[in-house]
Structures are given as structure tokens and as C-alpha cells.
């Protein structure tokens, strides 16, 4: 009898343990309703106590968003850039990256290169750069960011730029969500800084000795001043991370130079087009950058980028 009771007790406890583990592995499901986006939203709700509610009411969640490698590449291309493969980080360098910091920086760098190549329909370079981006993501143990299926899908659609761009966007989303949800926010930020720095390197090199006045690429480069405080705040969110601190030091060096660029902006006035439903934010801005400051910036970007890819 006692033995039976003991056995049934064990079974109950094992069932409880199994239930716990099952909940760890399965998603909750519920009713569905469309509330925006294009599809149906899964419900996953939890009830929280009044005390938690009061506590959370006093705190505000803050997010900072940097341009992704895809957006960076698109901005450079739209500003009139031409494709120069010699400006991209050679794929042979990929075997050099063995630390978390170098893999994170070069995941960003190679993804910007990949985006840049694909936006210019460089099919061979696209195939090569997705492989090295995968190598960096695998090195960082980012599960399924770029899997074999992704590569096969890319190969099958190599002449369809829209699908390729969509695949790159998907891999970026997989990487950033994986890193953020696994407490690796510093790595997620470093990836973005790497991609941003690569964009700045490509853009400053493409400008070279061209006139600065009425130059869209120069305007884009100067615009990056607007993202610096976002980048600094993001890197400061993980003050205990040595890699983030090292990257922050580089960004602070750049900030000193960007402070020499003046951007004046007029008031922003939103004007909605009722036909297209698109709002135009009307405003004027003036950018002032001297050749000396531009050269100083180019030189610093080259120095930092060189330290990242070597």
C-alpha cells in the first residue's frame, strides 16, 4: 500500500514536471483577430497584478533604432552611389574573425556588402556574401538566421531582386530577434554599428575628391550625425559589455568630427495627400561641411573600419 502510494506520488510529480517542461516548449494558443498588419494576430495574454501595473506605469520602455545594413545600403544607392566591389570587405578575410566582437562587427559589415551587391544586381557577389554572412552568424551561434534553405531560396531567385532583398530582410530580422531575445543586446548593437560603419566607409570613398556642394552622398554622410546619439545610447545600454565599450570609444571619436558639421533645420510641417494617404513632412535643412572636416571624417572612418576588418 505504502509502496503504491509512493509510486502514485512519484507519477504525479513526474506529470507535473512534464507539464512544466511542456509549457516551456509549446506556444500558448487562443482566439484570433485582425488588428492591423496584414494577418491575424495570435493571442498570448497573461494577467498581471495591480502592483506590477502601478510599477510599470512609472517606467517607460525606450527603444533606439539604427539604420539596418539593408537600409544603409539602400540609402547609399539612392544617393547616387555606383557599385565598386573593391570597396567591400574581401570574403577571404572571414577566416580571421574568431572573437565575438569581430564576428558581430563583420556580420554587420558583410550584410551591408551583401545588401549593396544585391541592390546593384551583382548576383555572383550576392551568393558569395550571403555565405560569409552565414559564417559570421553561425560563429555567433545565431540559430537559423541564415540556414541552408535560405541559401537555396536565394540561389533559386538570384535574378529576382525583390525576393533577394526580402530574404536579406528576413535574415536580419532573424538575427536581431534571436540576439535580443537571448539577452545578447550588446551583440545586436555591435552588428548594426558594423553595418553602419561599412556604409559610411563605402559612401566616403565614393565621394573621394568630388565636390561636396550639392552632393547627395555628402548629404547622406552628414545626416549620420542625427543617428549618433541613438548609437551612443544603444551602446550605453550594456555598460558591462567590454566589446560594446570598445565600439563606443570608436563612435565617440567619430562624434568629435561629426560635431564640426552643422545641420540647421526649419520647422517640420506635415502635409497629407488625401489621394495617396502619404504625408509629406515639409522642412528645409542646410548642411555645412568643409573639405578639411570631410577628409578628417573619411580618414577616421577608414582607420576604424580597417581595425574592424583586419
Amino acid at each position: 500500500m505504502n509502496y503504491k502510494l509512493m509510486q502514485s506520488g512519484k507519477i504525479t510529480l513526474l506529470l507535473f514536471a512534464f507539464l512544466g517542461l511542456l509549457m516551456a516548449g509549446c506556444n500558448r494558443s487562443g482566439s484570433k483577430a485582425d488588428k492591423g498588419g496584414n494577418g491575424e494576430f495570435d493571442v498570448f495574454e497573461s494577467q498581471v497584478g495591480q502592483e506590477t501595473q502601478e510599477k510599470l506605469n512609472t517606467a517607460k520602455r525606450i527603444f533606439y533604432s539604427l539604420p539596418s545594413p539593408l537600409e544603409t545600403a539602400m540609402l547609399i544607392k539612392n544617393a547616387g552611389a555606383t557599385y565598386q566591389e573593391s570597396l567591400l570587405n574581401p570574403v577571404d578575410n572571414s577566416s580571421k574573425y574568431i572573437t565575438n566582437k569581430s564576428m558581430a562587427l563583420n556580420l554587420g559589415i558583410y550584410t551591408t556588402d551583401l545588401s549593396f551587391a544585391s541592390l546593384f544586381d551583382q548576383t555572383q557577389a550576392t551568393l558569395v556574401y550571403i555565405e560569409v554572412a552565414k559564417k559570421m552568424a553561425d560563429g555567433l551561434n545565431i540559430l537559423d538566421a541564415i540556414d541552408e534553405e535560405t541559401i537555396e531560396r536565394l540561389e533559386a531567385n538570384i535574378n529576382n531582386r525583390d525576393i533577394i532583398i526580402d530574404i536579406i530582410s528576413e535574415t536580419l530580422l532573424n538575427s536581431s530577434s534571436f540576439l535580443k531575445e537571448n539577452g545578447l543586446e550588446a551583440t545586436a548593437t555591435i552588428v548594426l554599428v558594423g553595418g553602419w560603419m561599412e556604409g559610411l566607409y563605402i559612401a566616403t570613398n565614393l565621394v573621394g575628391n568630388s565636390p561636396l556642394q550639392d552632393n547627395k552622398l555628402v548629404e547622406r554622410i552628414a545626416d549620420q550625425k542625427l543617428s549618433l546619439d541613438i548609437m551612443i545610447n544603444l551602446l550605453n545600454e550594456t555598460p558591462d559589455d567590454a566589446d560594446a565599450r570598445a565600439v563606443l570609444a570608436d563612435v565617440m571619436e567619430l562624434k568629435k568630427i561629426f560635431e564640426k558639421i552643422t545641420i540647421t533645420q526649419s520647422e517640420v510641417t506635415p502635409v497629407e495627400d488625401p489621394e495617396s494617404n502619404i504625408t509629406l513632412l515639409k522642412s528645409e535643412s542646410t548642411i555645412n561641411i568643409t573639405r578639411d572636416v570631410f577628409n578628417e571624417l573619411s580618414s577616421k572612418v577608414k582607420e576604424i573600419r580597417s581595425s574592424y576588418i583586419s
Binding site: V48, T52, Q53, L56, N57, K60, R61, I62, F63, Y64, S65, L66, P67, S68, P69, L70, E71, M74, L75, N78, A79, I165, D166, I168, S169, E170, T171, L172, L173, S176, S177, K180, K216, E219, R220, D223, L226, S227, I230, N233, I278
Partner: peptide, 29 residues
């Protein structure tokens, strides 16, 4: 529109606020 690839999502409670800072560029929709 093409998603930029960035991920910003969190669990929020009714009554809770969040803020996101981002630079948007001219000549882009």
C-alpha cells in the same frame, strides 16, 4: 514597403508606454 530587418517588439501591459527613436532620411518613403 520593404521591412528594414530591425526587430522592435516587447510585452507591454495596459497603461504602459514605450518610445522609439529613429532617424528617417529625405527622398525615402
Amino acid at each position: 514597403y520593404q521591412h528594414d530587418g530591425n526587430y522592435h517588439a516587447a510585452l507591454l501591459i495596459e497603461g504602459e508606454e514605450a518610445e522609439l527613436y529613429k532617424t528617417f532620411y529625405s527622398d525615402t518613403d
